[in-house]
């Protein structure tokens, strides 16, 4: 990275941190409304181009079936069907099933990878049976770290080492300092207000803390600091997915029959209309719009669990493509 790029990136991270600490709910709500849906599309596109060749037709069908079930669960949420904890437990179980789909391939790579897959499945099932709602919150928070895994998987050599140093600073040090309250103290000492002001029309903080803060921690003084750290991570997640990953592209991934992304002339108009529609919906009824967005977000978040498990197992690029085209 050039000196100019370094200064730009560093300024961006520090400014984002200052905004997330000074106005966490504004930062969370505005970035979600403006960049939420585009980042889902960009991330799915990256996953498809980078990892598509490693997923054969049978595995793709199994994963799509699991994802469809998760979408139906989210639709049930919109319809108010079932208890929230039951839906969360079912979603976690479906997540475990997605990992189960790639378990045979992990086993072929070795016992360590198989043990990793088994641990992921056990963790999801344990969370589903013990504290499903909190587990979904932790999953939402941890999902913000996936760009680190994507960069670690995509880059090589010194570039990779440098990128991971940046990630340690941006995705590790800064959130840790914000969550501990240290960043808030620094900002307050500089004279900035750190009161939790709320954008008009989206409800009180209590309606939003639950997006990133588990129930057991929601009433304590720590809750707002944890929310600040998660809002900061959300911004970084969007920045890397929208700005960095598309530039990196598929790299050395073998060309595969890509997912059939719609190509008609009407597509840009439709996508723009959908994006603007949801952005307006966020402005009119934030909580309801977030539920709709959550359906799209769940698909892109859950598909990455088995995909990253496969990536970790470093399956040879293009091996699946040689066997057959994927769905």
């Amino acid at each position: 990275m050039t000196t100019r790029g370094t200064i730009f990136a560093l300024s961006g991270v520090l400014l984002t941190a200052a905004l997330a600490v000074a106005a966490p709910l504004w930062t969370y709500a505005l970035t979600l409304a403006l960049f939420g849906l585009p980042h889902v599309a960009a991330e799915l596109r990256y996953v498809d181009t980078r990892f598509g060749a490693r997923i054969d037709r049978g595995l793709a069908h199994a994963l799509w079936a699991g994802l469809l079930a998760i979408v139906l669960l989210r639709v049930a949420t919109l319809a108010g069907l079932g208890a929230p904890s039951q839906r969360a437990a079912l979603e976690l179980s479906l997540g475990a099933a997605l990992v189960l789909c790639v378990a045979p391939r992990l086993l072929r790579r070795g016992l360590v990878y198989a043990a990793l897959g088994a641990a992921l499945i056990a963790l999801a099932l344990w969370a589903a049976s013990v504290r499903p709602l909190d587990a979904i919150v932790w999953f939402a928070v941890l999902h913000n770290l996936t760009p680190v895994a994507f960069l670690a998987e995509r880059l090589r050599g010194e570039t990779r080492r440098r990128a991971l140093h940046w990630c340690l600073f941006a995705f590790g040090v800064m959130p840790a300092l914000i969550a501990s309250g240290a960043a808030g103290h620094v900002l307050a000492a500089l004279g900035a207000s750190t009161a939790a002001s709320v954008p008009p029309g989206i409800g009180g903080p209590e309606q939003h803390l639950g997006a990133f803060v588990p129930s057991a921690l929601r009433d304590g003084a720590l809750a707002l600091d944890l929310f600040r750290a998660a809002a900061f991570l959300q911004c970084l997640h969007y920045a890397v997915v929208l700005h960095v990953l598309p530039r990196l592209g598929a790299g050395d991934a073998a060309p595969a029959a890509p997912f059939c992304w719609p190509r008609g002339r009407w597509v840009p108009d439709l996508v723009t209309a959908g994006y603007l529609g949801l952005a307006v919906a966020f402005g009119l009824a934030f909580v309801d719009a977030r539920l709709v967005y959550g359906t799209f977000a769940a698909v892109h978040a859950w598909i990455e669990v088995p995909v990253l498990a496969l990536a970790l197992a470093s399956l040879p690029l293009g091996a699946a493509a040689a066997v057959g085209a994927r769905a």
Binding site: F169, V173, A176, L177, S180, L217, L222
Partner: peptide, 17 residues
């Protein structure tokens, strides 16, 4: 850098969690 990462989290874990 590593201390700036682990120390706040350890502080949180012991004192708050």
């Amino acid at each position: 850098a590593f201390n700036l990462f682990t120390h706040p989290l350890a502080w949180l874990a012991v004192l708050h969690l």
